[in-house]
Design a protein around this nucleic acid. Structure first.
Length: 163
DNA sequence: TTCTTGATTTCCT
DNA sequence: GGAAATCAAGAAA
C-alpha cells in the first residue's frame, strides 16, 4: 500500500515531496482502462519493466500524470498518483503551478507540482532524481471505483486516505 | 495517412 | 454547470 508514503523528486536541483493520499491501481493485461491493456507501445514501455521506475504520460495534450511501476517485468502493473499533500518544496510547487492553493489534489496537478513531464517517463526510483520512502499508513483507507475513465469502472481500485 | 478519443484542469457563462 | 485546450495512441480507411 502506497498511501501515506513520501514521493519526492529532484528536478534541476529543486527538491519537492508529497505525502500520498490518493492513488489508483492499473493492472495492465486484464484491465481495459490501462494504457498497457492493448500491449506495449513506446509510451507505455516503462510499465513493462521490472518496476521501480516512474511512468509519466500526457493526457488531453495538457496534463502530465505520474505513475509508479510496481509489477514484475512484463506485467505492466502501475499505480497512478492522484493526490497528496506537500511536505517539501512547497515554494517550488507554487512557482510551477503559478498558484498557492490546490497544488497537489489531482493527477495533472501533482505531475506539474513535482516538475515531472513525459521526458521523465521511465526514470528509476533510486533516489537520484526520484525517490519513494515508506511513511505512516493512514488510519482509515476508503476504497472506491476509479475516476475519469470510461471502462472497467466497477473495479474498486482507487484508494483514498480518509484520515 | 487521417480521424477519434482520452488516467484532466481551468476558465467562462 | 459547460466548454475549451492540445498531443499522442489506437483504430479506421
Amino acid at each position: 500500500m502506497l498511501l501515506g508514503w513520501i514521493f519526492s523528486t529532484r528536478i534541476q536541483g529543486v527538491v519537492t515531496a508529497v505525502r500520498l493520499t490518493e492513488v489508483e491501481a492499473y493492472m495492465g493485461a486484464g484491465d481495459p482502462a490501462s494504457h498497457a491493456y492493448r500491449g506495449r507501445t513506446s509510451r507505455t514501455a516503462p510499465m513493462f519493466t521490472a518496476g521501480g521506475v516512474i511512468y509519466v504520460y500526457l493526457v488531453y495534450g495538457v496534463h502530465n500524470c505520474v505513475n509508479v511501476v510496481t509489477g514484475e517485468e512484463g506485467t505492466a502493473q502501475a499505480v497512478l498518483l492522484r493526490g497528496g499533500v506537500p511536505v517539501a518544496g512547497r515554494d517550488a510547487m507554487e512557482n510551477r503551478r503559478e498558484r498557492s492553493t490546490d497544488l497537489t489534489d489531482g493527477p495533472g496537478k501533482l505531475g506539474q507540482a513535482l516538475g515531472l513531464t513525459t521526458q521523465h517517463s521511465g526514470l528509476p526510483i533510486d533516489g537520484t532524481l526520484v525517490s519513494l520512502q515508506p511513511g505512516e499508513s493512514p488510519g482509515r483507507v476508503a476504497t472506491t471505483p476509479r475516476i475519469g475513465i470510461s471502462k472497467a469502472t466497477d473495479r474498486l481500485w482507487r484508494f483514498v486516505a480518509a484520515e
